[in-house]
Write a protein that binds this DNA or RNA. Structure first.
Lengths: 112, 112
DNA sequence: TTGGAATATTCCTTTTGGGGTATATATAAA
DNA sequence: TTTATATATACCCCAAAAGGAATATTCCAA
């Protein structure tokens, strides 16, 4: 329930930031390239990148007077783990429910 | 925000909604129970549930004058798949990069 | 040192989101 | 019917977010 997850999700919940992340999936890029490819203007690109940076979704690698943005892997691993825990939990609840229903039916209509 | 994934992420990006989801993970509940357990008042609970509903994260099962909210599994499966695709992509990029660096070194300092 | 390119930041405006309170709706029971 | 309970919605207010334009900063090169 740690609030870091909400921050990660929030950072990813904006369409433009989502596009940035999808773009960086193909490889690291400087701000100007991101802005050009997504047809955003530079200041907004920097602002969105700041949100992603503060959510630890990207990191910066300075190169000359450019700043290359890289995706981090950790938040995605965390997101996967969290999301998977739901699938598991829900499946196991369903399995228990099925078992319970079987038992009910056996009670009503017992096998000999 | 017509993007389905962004909508899912947004719905999950609020702490209270995240708490609701974590609560429903343990099993379906009516609105009043959710509000009571999380110490939210009822209208906000309904509003948050509406957001989750429109993001297809929950579904409603009416029972008498109550409405039981259930988690759906699909969005979590989708989220897991999406998130995993990042891990895979990034790892494979890194592997290719390592290969490239090796090749560079062989060029500079060739083995016999 | 000056100039230029890349990026970050500031200021402003508009929109959106979340909380609070009151009210409407629906369903069940009497 | 009327009443009670559970839930949804409407309205208002405030804080936060996103976009645009201008400016500041940083770094490199000449």
């Amino acid at each position: 329930m740690s609030d870091g997850l909400a921050r990660t999700l929030f950072a990813l919940s904006d369409t433009n930031r989502l596009k940035i992340v999808e773009l960086l999936k193909r490889g690291p890029l400087p701000v100007g390239e991101i802005a050009a490819q997504l047809r955003l203007n530079q200041p907004q690109t920097s602002k969105h990148l700041k949100v992603l940076l503060e959510a630890d979704i990207v990191r910066i690698e300075p190169a000359a007077n450019r700043r290359i943005y890289h995706l981090r892997t950790e938040p995605f691993q965390g997101l996967t783990a969290w999301s998977q825990s739901f699938e598991q939990q829900m499946v196991s609840r369903m399995t228990r429910l099925e078992g319970y229903l079987e038992q009910m039916q056996d009670t009503v209509n017992p096998k000999e």
